[in-house]
Structure formats: structure tokens, C-alpha cells
Amino acid sequence: MKIIVALKQVPARDSQLKVAPSGKWIDESDLTFEINEPDAYALEEALQLKEKHGGEVIVLCAGPERAASSIREALAKGADRAIHIEEDDLGAYDTLALARVLAKAAETEKPDLVLTGLQSDDLGSGQTGVVMAELMGLPHATIIMQVELAGAGLRVKRELEDGWFQFAGMPLPALLTIQSGINKLRYATLMGIKKAKSKEIRRLTAADLGVPPRSTVTVAGIFAPPRMKQTQILDGSPREAAAKLVEKLKFEARVI
């Protein structure tokens, strides 16, 4: 089975973000970057499927030069080769423009399965995988918690709300967006890191793919949400006020 894993490099999860002087993006100078967490689970799922059923895992990543370190990590964990679409200002890309680039690169490989995280930890639109599937004309399923081969197709488990799950059968080729926690992430072993040095990374630009990096979205500015303080006086008898307070703590503040 030929599996493509689309992964994104994002700022490490507990980073302290600062707005860049341009006011249009975050200041990346002091940040450390890592593989977007749900994408790391997608990679792990792909590696486990390959270990069970054989085949090839190809990493697909669009991002600036620094994203190469995340690609290398994926190769060290066991992916066979990688495609790096090197573009500097993907921050300005909207989901559609990014998905067009990824879909175009993925199509040339004719994969049996495309996996990606259900959303990115930075922008979090949750759309890239789904739009890619539409552009590639593939069936897709989102928020996947389990993947099994079933005959010529797949049986997947989707996470719904409130502890409910949905099981669905689907044909191959297909695209799945993976939920964090679906499996247990492996470490890159030292042997894997050494092997990764000789694995192929194909470098392309959006222009090479014939997809001009044209965004339909313009970022006017970004800002940290302003801190807001609100004071409410709860009137009534102490008993009534306490009941209101408990209700507010439960359902508005959600702290109890």
C-alpha cells in the first residue's frame, strides 16, 4: 500500500507567541518548531499500516526551509522518502491555496491512501485534508480513531461527540484526517536517524507543480486577544446567589 502522509511544521505547542513587527504574522525568530501533533499521529498510523501490510510511506510537506527538520524526523521514524514543497510564506496561504499545492504533488504519486492530521495546531482550520480530498476526487473521512483494511477497502472509526463513535466502510484510494491519540507515537531511534540521512527528499516549489502560490485570503493583521475583566454582582438571598454562582462556574466559566 502506498501511503502519503501530509504533515505540517508548526511552532512548538507551549511557545510564547509574539506578533512580528509587520503586524501580519508571528515573530518566528525565537520559536522552536515541531511536527503538528495530529500529523505526527497520522505518520505513526501510516507506519503501522506499512508494518502490517507492507508498502511505502511518503511524507509530503509544504513549508519553508526549516520544515526540513520535521521531514527528516519523519524519515528517521521510518517513512521511506519525502516531498518538500519549499515555500517561504505559507502563513499567508489560505486552506484552498495550500490544498491545491499538496493535492497536485500527491496526485503524481497515485497513492492508495492519504493521511493527515485533522487540523493544524497553529491555524487550526481543519480543512486542508478535506479540501485536498475534494481536489483529488477521493472519498474522505475525518476525525479518525482507527483504521483497518477490509477487503479492497477500509473500515474506519470516527470520533463523534459525547463519547459516540461511528464506524464506516470506504473504498480505496481514500483520504483520512487523523485524530490525536489514535496510536502511540514512536521515538526516532538513533539507527533510524542515521538511515534517514540517505533517504530521498524531493524538493519542489509551487511553481514547479504548476500551481502558482496565489492566495485568495489576505491577512490584514494579527493580534493577541485582549484581556477582558468582567464583574457581575449576583443579587438575591445568599442561597439564591450561591446557586447562581455555581451555575455560572459550571456552565460559563466551566471550572467546576
Partner: peptide, 13 residues
């Protein structure tokens, strides 16, 4: 890159 990756594996472990 490899040196940082090796450190990352050891650090995560």
C-alpha cells in the same frame, strides 16, 4: 539537523 534530532529523541525519552 541529525544532532538536534538525536538530542530530541533522548530528551523526549
Amino acid at each position: 539537523e541529525e544532532e538536534r534530532l538525536v538530542r530530541q529523541t533522548a530528551r523526549q525519552f
